[in-house]
Each structure stands twice: as structure tokens, then as C-alpha cells.
Design a protein around this nucleic acid. Structure first.
Lengths: 221, 221
DNA sequence: CTCCTGACGGCAGTGACTGACATCGCCCTC
DNA sequence: GAGGGCGATGTCAGTCACTGCCGTCAGGAG
């Protein structure tokens, strides 16, 4: 018989997300998280650098996925398009665990300290993309701009995606000004879950739409 | 006679920057900062929310400056150009205190926790710009993209500016891949401080150059 | 069987940050 | 000009994030 239950890390992650949702990030202590996971505080800090890190995936899987996806894009593609293409491919990681992502994001957007960490993670992604682009021969400044711009596009698309998949009870007072007319794109296969309700788009589609808006913006003069 | 020396906040800021430079961010305690400023630890935390905040200007002066500068840009200007124009005007805030900015930035770029805070500040700037743009009638998504893209441009330009004004002793092993040919723009009034040394460009000029690169990038397909 | 390693517990310590209360020059009012 | 409120600071105690060090013990290698 094993001396300890397996998957200590996963138990800590789950306990943390639960507690952060139940009682808020700052009012739950690491000790409580560890106890719910059947472990000690000391062990928590062996698995995670700090109290925030437990909310973020380990080992930068998204970054690796992005770099891999970028490798599959033809070298002839313009940098920004290549980045967005990689972003679209990687968006499956979000679609798969939609509920988990939504819960996680709800906690993060409720606490400034967590938003800081999130921004750092996104910056790290941007850096990964920049490296991958320079490895393709893209000049450094161009690579930085393409990566940063791509991330900006993704942020906007991700926000829209979350909005579109909100809890039904919470979607009333939402600020809709950031969803301009996009009725001129009836090409996506809408499959409304419930009649009379707004379509729930793919993240990948939203990324593409947002990129198109950006291009129009940049060409505007 | 006053009961306390004036400008406690300023003394704390200076003491903190000095100590962070002398001994590093994580090895200096708040108590030490307060002592050097002739105050107590408790007073430090009355002026600053935490140990990092002491490095960042109070009250978002840059944000207000940007919003004001944006107000002076004609409403007819395209959003991204308006943002970049505001950025260029606000860049005087950096030129004025070049040394302070460089010292501050050197400390920040040496510690991940400080970089997180910096990213949060930049995100706040981006949000201010977004608000100002929507107040001008720009659709929200467009505003977000223009603001984020503008900030990306500024980040790149700022990095270049810092590189160009580095300490002479430190500029040897620098990575120069991010400085592609820009010799085709001899229109700025170069005033080399020392003959034989590389020209030291204005931040505003670098912002403009970087924007031009971005536009070329976005138009690339 | 023995040794070693890996994953955890226990414990003490440091330092960031907070809440409650005291102090005392300054300024306003009567 | 005496009294009182205000504002900036000091003092003290306390919580909690995070770390270093050492002990424990199952399982695998030899």
C-alpha cells in the first residue's frame, strides 16, 4: 500500500480553486488549502512557489502548444498571421475545459494580485512566441510586435468568449458596447443550444474576427 | 518648528530606490528603508500599499497625462494614431528624468515580482487609454485594440530608448538583434554628446519609428 | 538485507502587512 | 489665548506567507 494518496498536486489545485471560490482569495489561508487536500502547508510550498501559482497551469503547456502550432504554420505566412493561426490552434485547450477556465477566470478577475500574475503569464507567452518567430528568421522587433499584437487580439477574443458563455443568470447587466455588429459574417455554423438565445461562438472564430478588426484599424490611415 | 521633517513620502521613495540598488530588492527589508528615511516601518505602509509600490509613481500621473494629451488630438485622427500621438507627447515625462527612470528600470528588470507590478501598471494605462477612446466615440473593441497595440509599440520603443542611453561601461555584450537598420531616417537633429558614439534618439521619435514598423507588419498581407 | 532516494511531516524563524491605540504639533474657533 | 479637533507619526501585538533544516518511511536498486 502506498504511503500517500496519489496526485497531491492535483488535490491541492482543486482544493485551492474551491476555497478561493467559496471564501475569496485573501481570506483563505494556505493551511486551509493543504488541510482540505489532506496535506500540510509545507507540502503546498513544495509544489507551488506561492499562493497564487496554484491557479496557473504547471510547465507552461500553453506556451509549448503555441510554439508547436507555430511550427506547423508555413514559413511564408506573415508573422502576425502566423501568430494568430497558432493562437487559433491552441484555443482548443480552452474549449476543452470551458467550465474550469471560467471558474478560474472568475477568481482571477476578482483579485488584483492574481491579475498581476496572469499578466506575467501572458507576457511569458508573448516572449515564447517572440522567440519562436525569431527562430523562423523574423527580425526581433517585428517578432515582438507580432507577438504582443497577437496576444492583444487573443485577450479581446478571450473576453468575448467568456462573455458569450456566461452563466445565464449573470448575463443581464453586461456591458455590450464591446460587441459591435458582426452580423455580416453568417458563415459560421451556428448551433444555438437553446432557440432565441445568442449563439456561442468558438474561441478560434472570435480570434479570427478580432484580428480582422485590428487589420481594419491599422489600415485606417 | 515642525514636528516632523517634510516630504516623508519622497524620503521613503529615495531610500527604497537606493537600497534596492545597493543590496537588491528581496534582501532589503521595509524596516531598513524606513530607518534610512528616518521613519518607522508602520509609516512606510501608510504611504505605500506594499514593498513594491514604492517604486512606482503615485496617482497615475502618466495615465492622466496620456488622457489629457489624447484630448488634444483632433477627433478625426484614427484611433491608433491618436494613441501613439498621445504617447509621444507624454514621453517628455521620461526624457525629463532619464537617470531616475533608468535606475528604476534596472531594479525592476532584475526582479520578477517587480516586473509583475510593472505589467499591472501598464495594463492600467491601457485601460485609461481605452476609456478615453470610448469617450471619443470609438467602439469598445476598437478602443481596446488601439490601446493595447499602442502600449506594445511604446514598450518596444522604451526598450530601445533605454538601450540607446545605457551606461557606457555596460553596452558591450548587448543583444543588438532588436535594432534593425534605421539608418534611412537621417531627418532627426542628431547632437552626439561624444563624437564617435551612437546617436541618442528621443523617445518620441522611437515611438514613431516603431509604429511605422507595426503598420508595415499589419499591412504585410 | 542494506542502502538510497523521493515525497512528505514537523518545527522554528523571518519578514510583509494590519489593526488598535497613543502622541503631539498645528490650526481653527470662541 | 485657552480649548478642541485634525493629521501625521510612533508603538505594540498579531496573522500569515514563505523558507531552511531535519526527521520519517515506503519502495526500488544492488
Amino acid at each position: 500500500m502506498a504511503r500517500w494518496e496519489p496526485n497531491a498536486r492535483g488535490r491541492l489545485e482543486q482544493a485551492a480553486l474551491e476555497l478561493y471560490r467559496e471564501r475569496g482569495f485573501d481570506t483563505t489561508t494556505v493551511k486551509e488549502i493543504a488541510q482540505r487536500a489532506g496535506l500540510t502547508e509545507r507540502t503546498f510550498f513544495r509544489h507551488f512557489a506561492d499562493k497564487r501559482e496554484v491557479l496557473f497551469p504547471h510547465g507552461n503547456p500553453l506556451g509549448e502548444n503555441l510554439v508547436a502550432a507555430l511550427g506547423a504554420v508555413p514559413e511564408t505566412a506573415p508573422p502576425l498571421d502566423a501568430v494568430v493561426s497558432a493562437l487559433r490552434k491552441a484555443s482548443g485547450l480552452f474549449e476543452e475545459r470551458r467550465e474550469l477556465v471560467r471558474h478560474r477566470q472568475a477568481v482571477i478577475s476578482a483579485h488584483a494580485e492574481l491579475q498581476e500574475r496572469e499578466l506575467a503569464k501572458l507576457a511569458s507567452l508573448s516572449a515564447s512566441l517572440t522567440e519562436a518567430l525569431t527562430a523562423r528568421g523574423v527580425p526581433r522587433t517585428t517578432a515582438v510586435l507580432a507577438a504582443e499584437t497577437g496576444m492583444a487580439v487573443f485577450k479581446v477574443a478571450f473576453t468575448r468568449w467568456l462573455d458569450a458563455h456566461e452563466e445565464p443568470g449573470q448575463r443581464a447587466q453586461q456591458d455590450r458596447r464591446d460587441l459591435p455588429d458582426q452580423r455580416d459574417q453568417p458563415d459560421q455554423a451556428d448551433q444555438p443550444d437553446q432557440p432565441g438565445q445568442r449563439a456561442q461562438p468558438d474561441l478560434a472564430d472570435l480570434v479570427q474576427e478580432t484580428l480582422d478588426e485590428l487589420k481594419a484599424l491599422a489600415a485606417q490611415d
